[in-house]
Computed example of a mutant assay.
Amino acid sequence: MADEVTTIPPRRGGTLGGFLAKAAGILVLLALAALLILWVVQRYVAARLSPDPTTIASASLEGLREQNRLSAFAARYVAVVTSRQTQMGLSTEKTLIMPGMVRYEVDLGKLTQRDVRWDAAHRQLLVKLPGLEIDGPQVDLAAIREYGSGGLLSHITDADQRLETANRKAGQAELLHQARDAMPMKLARDATRHAIERSFAMPLRAAGIDASVRVSFADEPVSNDERWDVSRSLEEVTANAR
């Protein structure tokens, strides 16, 4: 019987190992690419879905401007004035008690994007309102009381009419003087400040933004901790976004 020769094929373990190594490298690259794509998508979605405080503040500003005027505080005052007239050696006088209502208002139509600033470092929205305006006084005519000494002069001249005119003019001036006193002006500013702060803060909270709102008035003295120079107005933010 002839000898049978069997040829044993060479082992190819080295080639298979190289293939597996290349496949593993490709898988790693694909995984890294997938992670990169996921990161980009997450950043894009976050940029689209995350609320922007300046956008929300701009919407709140437009809503306030549409209200035109805000009256968050009113007060009732009473003026007591006396006028005296002397003529031909005779004299007479009258005292007037005049109650009246005064409203403190802010013209929201004067608010612009320059008056609303976002301080990103302190996460604070800064709003500067126009100065307070006084509407009135609205005199309560039914509650006016007059007291006079009468006398001969009031019968032979028009002294009564002159005294009444002078008292009414002085009474209205006195009501305004009381309304402009430091204490009612502070109360009016505080009431207006709280109303505006709520108007801006509520939409920010609803959007999940942790931020505070600080309101000041254009006719108030600037405090030492004022940060208007380091914050950006909505006008500046909008201009940079274009």
Rank of each mutant, 00 (worst) to 15 (best):
G25H: 03
R12I: 13
L36T: 13
L32A: 15
V41W: 01
S60I: 02
G13D: 15
T7A: 09
P53Y: 03
I8Y: 12
L16V: 15
A47Y: 07
A21Q: 04
P9M: 08
V28R: 00
L36I: 12
A59C: 01
A23D: 03
A23S: 10
S60P: 00
V41C: 01
I37R: 03
T15A: 15
L29H: 02
L30K: 03
Y44E: 03
Q42A: 08
P9D: 11
P9G: 13
V45L: 14
P51A: 11
D52L: 07
R11I: 12
R11A: 12
A47C: 00
P10F: 11
L49E: 11
A59M: 05
L35K: 03
L61S: 02
R48A: 06
L49A: 08
A34Q: 03
L27F: 11
A21V: 12
Q42M: 04
I37L: 14
G25T: 06
P9I: 10
A33K: 04
V41F: 04
I8D: 04
L30Q: 07
G63D: 14
L38H: 02
A46T: 05
L29N: 00
G25D: 03
G18K: 13
F19Y: 13
L29V: 13
T7K: 04
A57L: 05
P51F: 00
L35A: 15
S60V: 00
A57G: 05
G25F: 09
Y44V: 03
S58V: 05
F19G: 11
Q42L: 07
R11C: 10
F19N: 10
L20N: 04
S58N: 13
D52W: 03
L36D: 06
L36A: 15
T15D: 09
Y44L: 08
A31Q: 07
P10H: 11
